[in-house]
């Protein structure tokens, strides 16, 4: 019996230890730090503030704006990426020309560094020499202040994320489509269902598991977005792209308020957990095949 436990410990011990040190301990430390007021420059000088940091988060307009901006961004990404990726997947699932080339092109941004993409889009959207404004003026339209306008900065970053993440979602939808038994669609065709009816009553219900996975992944990716505000906007203009991941970083390092940053992190973690659970429940598959 002891020998068996030793073997088990030998296999899982190192990984459990790493998991505990690098995953669980930071969460415990974050919970602890969220109850204290201190500076990162001098963490030994700390004062216990109880739930004071949480109260600050819930009453500070800047923090509330960061939450609102982040969830608006996630919603924007999900509602644009999911249909785009699904349509692309349907196209790639058919016997159409240039399928392999389109698949490669669509997937390329997924394997590119987030910082590289953010830098590239900064140049593209730059108002003086940017390609996008260049095209707009070439066709007689006025230049747009994509990243310096309060109303345009967030949609511009949603557009960038759509370009970046569509490939990943497409590949997931494609694998889901290819896993659907061909006989079910054939049976529906025999029963007289049109292509649209087959899509609505056969394909979409059977893709529920994939859709759930894609929605959860896109939501989590969006909520974790850090490079766009860091590289492109600095959280501005006027906090309209101050995503929570960037806000937490700014609070901890630039503003030297790691206790407050930890409180934001805890609240954020709980909300993300709740959203994921809700999404999984709402999008639960009612079909099995």
């Amino acid at each position: 019996m002891i020998r068996r436990w030793v073997t088990i410990a030998a296999f899982i011990g190192p990984f459990l230890l790493l998991l505990a040190v690098f995953q669980y301990w930071p969460v415990v430390a974050m919970l602890r730090d969220s109850l204290y007021d201190f500076q990162l420059l001098d963490p030994s000088r700390r004062s216990f503030v109880g739930l004071g940091n949480y109260l600050d988060v819930l009453t500070d307009p800047d923090r509330l704006q960061a939450f609102a901006v982040t969830f608006s961004f996630a919603a924007g990404v999900v509602v644009t990426v999911i249909p785009t990726a699904f349509l692309l997947a349907v196209y790639l699932n058919g016997a159409l020309p240039a399928r392999a080339l389109v698949r490669t092109i669509v997937f390329l941004p997924v394997v590119t560094s987030a910082v590289v993409i953010a830098t590239m889009w900064t140049f593209l959207l730059e108002p003086n020499n940017g390609l996008v404004d260049g095209v707009l003026t070439a066709v007689g339209l006025p230049r747009l202040d994509f990243l310096t306008s309060e109303s345009q900065a967030l949609p511009s970053i949603v557009l960038m994320m759509l370009w970046q993440q569509t490939g990943f979602a497409t590949v997931l939808f494609l694998s889901g489509l290819q896993a659907i038994p061909r006989e079910l669609e054939d049976a529906a065709s025999v029963d007289g269902a049109s292509a649209l009816q087959r899509l609505r009553h056969v394909t979409l219900p059977l893709l529920a598991r994939t859709t759930m996975f894609v929605v959860v992944m896109m939501t989590v990716f969006s909520l974790q977005a850090f490079a766009p505000p860091l590289v492109m906007t600095g959280g501005g203009p006027d906090g309209t792209t101050n995503f929570l991941a960037y806000d937490i970083y700014s609070l901890a390092f630039s503003l030297q308020q790691p206790g407050l940053a930890s409180a934001v992190s805890v609240i954020f973690m709980l909300i993300v957990l709740a959203i994921s659970l809700l999404q999984m429940r709402l999008l639960r598959a009612r079909w099995a095949y």
Binding site: P61, S149, E150, G234, G236, D238, S250, S254, L255
Partner: peptide, 29 residues
């Protein structure tokens, strides 16, 4: 003793003012 924080917050405010934020409201913020 909190210059780094002052620097970050005021830099962001001046950037937003340059981009079009109302000066009084942004400085008050």
């Amino acid at each position: 003793a909190k210059f780094a924080q002052y620097d970050k917050i005021v830099t962001d405010a001046l950037r937003d003012i340059a981009y079009g934020a109302a000066p009084k409201a942004r400085l008050d913020a």
